[in-house]
């Protein structure tokens, strides 16, 4: 067991992947000489050289597309995009190419590509660096969407993602990189298909993922002080969704709050909420509640950003409003 950070756990996974499989290479803006804009890949250039830790120009569409091509031809690229907002420049490659190639080639080709990127707000980076657009990607068939919220997942998701024959997008919430915690020296492989119950409770289910897991756990702790037992489910995989886990919990608690840092309209939270309503309607003792970001481009000022983002207060209020 070593105490580590989310960032270091990710780095360790990358290092092991690079060391363990010659087909694996890391590519992206400033992953090499600069050490990664969030220092995830610090030191890897020195260890693996510029062919395998490859700095790219500011050309998101081209290097993501190049990742697709390399994957088609037998490599196992890990492409890093600095921030989800910048991934929009590569949206064409991800949605029109990576996600569709297997299908439109009638199963002849497949794209074993891993794309990692930062997501989320909370650091006063304002309207072009703060959004949570992973829900958009979760809309797209052909992709697997992961959101590691813990150190164990930060480490453990990369290897199975690389084993996946199809494109996998990993969304790392920017506020998590400095998170400290323990990682076993020989961690168990993680299973990408299931959600995780991060706290148990009988009165209410809080469904969340990624950067808002901490928010949800804080809220659950406060609710416990009021005698309300909140179960916290970390979705972990946003596509496909582990709805059986969610439904099993809601079937016991009869109340659900979905917490998602994305915007509410047409969102991942909308999907989860709709599925609960579709499949657990007669188990619900209250409408499904959602706590999302206010529907504004992110403001810079701290007090505004705080107000816009889902906070533990908002979750507690939502839980109370359900009469839990």
């Amino acid at each position: 067991m070593t105490t580590t950070t989310y960032r270091e756990a990710m780095r360790r996974a990358l290092r092991e992947a690079l060391a363990g499989d010659e087909r694996v290479f890391l590519m992206g803006e400033d992953v090499g000489a600069y050490g990664g804009c969030y220092a995830v890949s610090l030191g890897l250039l020195e260890e693996f050289g510029p062919d395998r830790v490859r700095d790219t120009p500011l050309s998101e569409s081209a290097f993501v597309g190049a990742g697709i091509g390399a994957a088609l031809a037998g490599m196992r690229p890990v492409v890093e995009i600095m921030t989800v907002n910048f991934s929009l420049l590569a949206l064409d490659q991800i949605v029109n190419n990576a996600a569709a190639l297997r299908y439109m080639s009638g199963g002849q080709f497949h794209v074993p590509l891993v794309i990692r990127m930062t997501t989320g707000a909370g650091r006063q980076l304002a309207s072009q660096h703060s959004h949570s657009l992973e829900g958009w990607y979760a809309h797209v068939p052909g992709l697997r969407i992961l959101a590691p919220a813990t150190i164990g997942d930060a480490y453990g998701m990369l290897a199975p993602a690389l084993d996946d024959p199809d494109p996998v997008l990993i969304f790392e919430h920017g506020a998590l990189y400095g998170m400290k915690g323990d990682l076993p020296d020989d961690p168990d492989p993680v299973d990408l298909t299931s959600a995780a119950v991060r706290r148990t409770g009988d009165d209410l289910t809080i469904v969340t993922y990624g950067g808002t897991l901490g928010t949800a756990l804080d809220a659950a702790e406060r609710l416990a002080g009021e005698g309300i037992g909140a179960e916290v489910i970390d979705l972990r995989s946003l596509r496909p969704l582990d709805m059986p886990a969610v439904l099993a919990s809601v079937g016991r608690t009869h109340r659900a709050v979905v917490v998602d840092e994305g915007w509410r309209s047409g969102s991942l939270s909308a999907e989860v909420s709709a599925r609960i309503t579709e499949d657990a309607f007669y188990d619900l003792d209250a409408p499904v509640a959602r706590v999302c970001s206010a529907e504004v481009p992110m403001p810079y000022a701290k007090h505004l950003e705080d107000a816009v983002l889902p906070g533990a207060d908002d979750v507690v209020t939502a839980a109370r409003s359900l009469g839990a």
């Binding site: 006063q124 980076l125 304002a126 309207s127 072009q128 660096h129 403001p299 810079y300 000022a301 701290k302 007090h303 505004l304």
Partner: peptide, 14 residues
């Protein structure tokens, strides 16, 4: 981040 700012504190430095 003040409302007297050129972008009302919405935009910040960038």
């Amino acid at each position: 981040g003040k409302v007297e700012g050129v972008s009302r504190g919405r935009g910040g430095s960038m």
